[in-house]
Design a protein around this nucleic acid. Sequence first.
RNA 1: GCCGGCGUAGCUCAGUUUGGUAGAGCAUCGCUUUUGUAAAGCGAUGGUCGCAGGUUCGACUCCUGUCGCCGGCUCCA
Length: 717
Amino acid sequence: MSKPVTITLPDGKTLAFDGPTTGLQVAEKIGARLAKDALGVKVDGELRDLTAPITHDAKVSIVTYKGRDGTISTDALYLVRHSAAHIMAEAIQRVVPEAQLVYGPPLEDKFYYDIKFPDNRPLREGDFAKIEEEMKKIVAEDRKFTRYEQAREACMTRLASEGNKYKVDNAERAIKADPNAALSFYATGEPGKNFEDLCRGPHVPSTGRIGAIKVLSLASSFWHGDENSDRLTRVYGTAFATQAEMDAYFALKEEAAKRDHRVLGKQLHLFHIDEAVGQGLILWTPNGGIVRDQLQRFISEELVKQGYFQVFTPHIGRLELYKTSGHFPYYKESQFAPVIEREALEELSKSGCSCSEMMHRVEGVSARLAATINERTAKQTITPDRVLADDKLIEGFMLKPMNCPHHIKIFNSRAYSYRDLPIRLAEFGTVYRWEQSGELNGMTRVRGFTQDDAHLFCTEDQVAAEVLGCLSLVKIVLGTLNMNNYRVRVGLRDPDGKKYTGTAAQWDKAEAACRDAAKTLGVPFSEEPGEAAFYGPKIDFVVKDVIGREWQLGTVQVDYQLPVRFGLSYTGSDNKPHTPVMIHRAPFGSMERFTGVLIEHFAGAFPTWLSPEQVRVLPISEKTNDYAQKVAATLRAKGIRATVDDGNDRVQGKIKVAAEAKIPYMAIVGPRDAEQGMVSLRIRGVEKDAGAMPLATFADAIAAEVAERRAVLGVKP
RNA sequence: GCCGGCGUAGCUCAGUUUGGUAGAGCAUCGCUUUUGUAAAGCGAUGGUCGCAGGUUCGACUCCUGUCGCCGGCUCCA
């Protein structure tokens, strides 16, 4: 006799079964409609096949495409896409029978299948139409996904006989991960008759449940992501439960493409990247310059309110500075190469110094510096092999990859008492990092960028309040920009990790400070053990833009390490030296990335205060050019960025051009307006004449909107 | 950095398959028009076809290298 099974549903109701049941039976018991719509089942939080046996009491929820609240279930899409990957794999094998399947998981909004194609028959985009045709056939056949398990020995023998080393490897890995796991296969239809794939599942009940399926693109990948391993072809596809949902997905993609800051940056003349200047190096053109300048002024104003001091530091620093901080040569792969002094270089080339010898000498540390650092860090931080005689050392400079060493030197340029702390040093500091060329992307991933950086030097007791202050600044700025949808990630130390500096007590305190500060923000936050830097915990900001994409912007990091390495101290109330704690913070990451994200967030239609051109005056004909100039002059006198389009076009043409430039306000002026001292307004986003208003009222209203940095256009006649 | 695709006027693109040194729209400039809410008409200017080699009587077109961009992979103190 089998044991009775009690199923608890999401609403708390329970269903009793005499013995093992399945998700399908549960659904049938609830209602025929639900059974028909069911795609899978969640048993105690685990996603499973609808027909998988449920043998013990469990909390069960039936996965349908749309949840009770009408939103689309991510679990359903997971099932749909995972199943779609099998269908695509089968279709591809019909088109290219020699293709060896490797691995095909679902992703957030699509899926892929890594496949090894024979060298003489690679997959091309031209094959997509044929593959999609086959996929649609498979969907139309509405074949059941049938799961069966096979004994390990038989399974391995079978896979080996099929000659696909990748699947053999997958099976071996599955066994390694869980020695008790059963190896399962899924047949798209009947085992032994239809396409089968080694797969853990789960899947939708049958191929007909996939409403829309499409091959997206090709890319290359490596087996296990190892570039020394086999090169595979990654075929991307996507699938949805309905065609309407797929259409909406592509509409969103199109919307995202329209907002692409690289496209808008060109159209709106915001920035330029020039081959001759270099990859990943942003040239801020006049329009982009205005946006950046306005952002910086705004941030600076807030910093003054919060007691920061503005500092300025050069773009380079001596190698010794970075040897002290530990950034060189440890991170040399991601830095621009050092600038070696001319005389040293000439001497080296004369003496026939080899490249590796030269690098060794560039990276060398003097005995004095090595002794100092080793003493301060109380261990052999600088190993003896890096210590060189002074006449062997090669001096040079580095483009700064971060601002902290410079700011540390400013802190250390005078003596501080505990009464002086915290000291908050802020700088829009430009740094240079050697990002891999394949990673560069418009403004969001660059090689030279200006951080909205600051370093706070405080006592341990002040850490919590200072972290909180950093977060409140972020909240003010993001709120002003109407970016209220963001979350924070709190990076904590790995409980087992040994790489961390500082004491456990310090860490506990700092982590508590970060956690508490994050809580006060009133936004979602997650704790991520193991994500801390080796020198302290950190808080990352992840902002969601208006179309739902997430962007990692800046961080706040607590640092116990650098103050030690640089031997920083302040005098405590006990008249003894104490080591300060440092907080690094760049809440928006960089002006480049932040501006890039803002461009996409606003789709180029900036709030008035950020708009490069705030008002364009459009005279109806030459006859009102003079009045138009007067209008613009009046606005400019109020600090408003206004221009006149006195070209020979008709007003319709001028409106089109100004609208495409996404200018917030158009002041259209003809004889009527000139006589009465009015302007006829057209507001961005309102596709009609908004009516006339007196020039003086208009100027004051716009000036107020700008002064308050309002996020939405509010001037109306 | 790796794999694939792509580089033609300031911008968006055609022409390359089948080698005979380029074409459109927008922008710019000029003329006509004097205009009331998303482009009036006509004309002109503008390109050593990313760069460097090679093949050829002849290369935007074919080959090699190189630089850059895009999509992925990998990476991001």
